[in-house]
C-alpha cells in the first residue's frame, strides 16, 4: 500500500528520529510512505506572522505537487505542517478568488481535494485495527499524552474530537499497553515558535506542562509534534530554571513508542537522539 508523505523540514533535521520512526513502523506494517516530490517548507509560524500570501502559497505548492504526483491521501506527521496545510486547504476552499490567484502564481492546477491525515489519524486508520498482530512488547508505563495546539485547534476548522480533552492518542497508547494518565495540560501551548527567540517563555509554558504531567504521575510524555518535542526535550534547561528543579521525565514521539512496542531496538526507534535520556527500561 502506498500513501503520500510530507515530512516537512523539522523531520529532516532536528526531529529526524520522528521521521525515522514513522518510516520504520510503516515499513514493518507494509505501508510505503511516498514523499511528495520536490516538496518545500510550509512557511510555519514565520510566514503567517509576516506575510499573508506566503502563508498560503507555500503550503499550496505542496498541495499542488501532491496532486500532480497522483496522491489522494497525505500523511503529515509534523503537527505544525499539518495545521498549515489543513488551514490553507480550508482557506482556499472558502475563497475561490484566492484559489485561482494562487494557482496562477504556482502555475500548477489546484483541485484542493486532498485528504490530509495527521499522525494520530494515520495511526488510527492504518495501525489501530492491526495492533494486536503488530505488537510484540507491550509498552507498560504511565504516560502523559500531549497533543499541543496544532492538532486540535482552531476547532472551527480542525475537527478534532473533544478538543479540550482529546482522547485519540490516549486510546492508541492504551492499546499499546500503556496507562495514559488524566491530566490538564493536554492541549496547552508549549511556546511553539519561540524556541529560539523567546526561550524564557518556552521555559515557562513548557515548564507548566511538564510539571503537571509529572505531578499526575507520568513516566514519559508522548508527543506528536516536533516543535512540542524540541521545546519539552531540548529546552529542558530553560524548563528546569523556570521550575527551579531538575525534571527528568523523557519525551518521546508516539511513533517511537509504537516502534518499541513493535519490538524494535531503542536505536532503531531513535531514542539516542533525545536530550533527556529515556531513563526507564522500555523494552520489558
Amino acid at each position: 500500500m502506498k500513501i503520500g508523505f510530507y515530512p516537512g523540514c523539522s523531520l529532516t533535521g532536528s526531529s529526524r528520529e520522528y521521521k525515522e520512526s514513522i518510516l520504520a513502523i510503516s515499513e514493518k506494517a507494509g505501508i510505503e510512505l511516498v514523499e511528495i516530490s520536490d516538496w518545500n517548507c510550509c512557511g510555519a509560524t514565520a510566514a503567517h506572522n509576516l506575510n499573508k500570501e506566503l502563508s498560503v502559497s507555500l503550503p499550496a505548492r505542496n498541495l499542488a505537487l501532491a496532486e500532480s504526483d497522483g496522491i489522494e491521501e497525505l500523511v503529515v506527521p509534523c503537527a505544525a505542517c499539518y495545521n498549515r496545510l489543513v488551514m490553507t486547504q480550508h482557506e482556499l476552499n472558502e475563497d475561490e478568488k484566492l484559489k485561482s490567484q494562487i494557482a496562477e502564481k504556482l502555475q500548477m492546477p489546484l483541485k484542493n481535494k486532498l485528504k490530509i491525515l495527521n499522525v494520530l489519524q494515520y495511526l488510527e486508520e492504518y495501525f489501530v485495527p492491526r495492533l494486536d498482530e503488530l505488537i510484540k512488547k507491550p509498552f507498560e508505563e504511565e504516560v502523559a499524552c500531549y497533543y499541543g495546539c496544532l492538532l486540535v485547534r482552531p476547532n472551527q476548522v480542525i475537527k478534532a474530537d473533544r478538543w479540550e480533552d482529546p482522547m485519540s492518542m490516549d486510546v492508541i497508547m492504551q492499546k499499546l499497553g500503556a496507562k495514559p494518565i488524566d491530566w490538564a495540560f493536554k492541549t496547552e501551548c508549549c511556546g511553539a515558535g519561540f524556541s529560539m527567540s523567546k526561550t524564557e517563555i518556552v521555559g515557562e509554558l513548557s515548564g507548566k506542562i511538564v510539571r503537571n504531567a509529572v505531578n499526575q504521575g507520568a513516566k514519559a510524555i508522548v508527543v506528536a509534534c516536533p516543535m512540542c518535542h524540541s521545546n519539552l526535550d531540548m529546552r529542558r534547561p530553560a524548563i528546569n530554571s523556570y521550575l527551579k528543579t531538575k525534571i527528568e521525565v523523557p519525551v518521546m514521539y508516539i511513533t517511537q513508542a509504537i516502534a518499541l512496542a513493535m519490538g524494535m531496538s531503542e536505536k532503531e526507534a531513535g531514542l539516542q537522539r533525545h536530550f533527556v535520556p529515556v531513563s526507564f527500561s522500555v523494552n520489558c
Binding site: 523540514c9 523539522s10 529532516t12 533535521g13 532536528s14 520536490d38 516538496w39 518545500n40 517548507c41 512557511g43 510555519a44 509560524t45 514565520a46 510566514a47 506572522n49 509576516l50 506575510n51 506566503l54 507555500l58 515558535g193 519561540f194 529560539m196 527567540s197 523567546k198
Partner: peptide
C-alpha cells in the same frame, strides 16, 4: 528578536526551498 527570527526563517526558506536549521540559526 522575534521578527528577526521569522525573517531569518523565511530567508532561509527563500534560499533553499526548505529550512536548514543550521543556516536559520546562523542567519538569526
Amino acid at each position: 528578536k522575534i521578527v528577526a527570527f521569522h525573517k531569518s526563517f523565511l530567508n532561509t526558506v527563500k534560499r533553499n526551498g526548505r529550512l536548514s536549521e543550521l543556516f536559520l540559526t546562523i542567519d538569526y
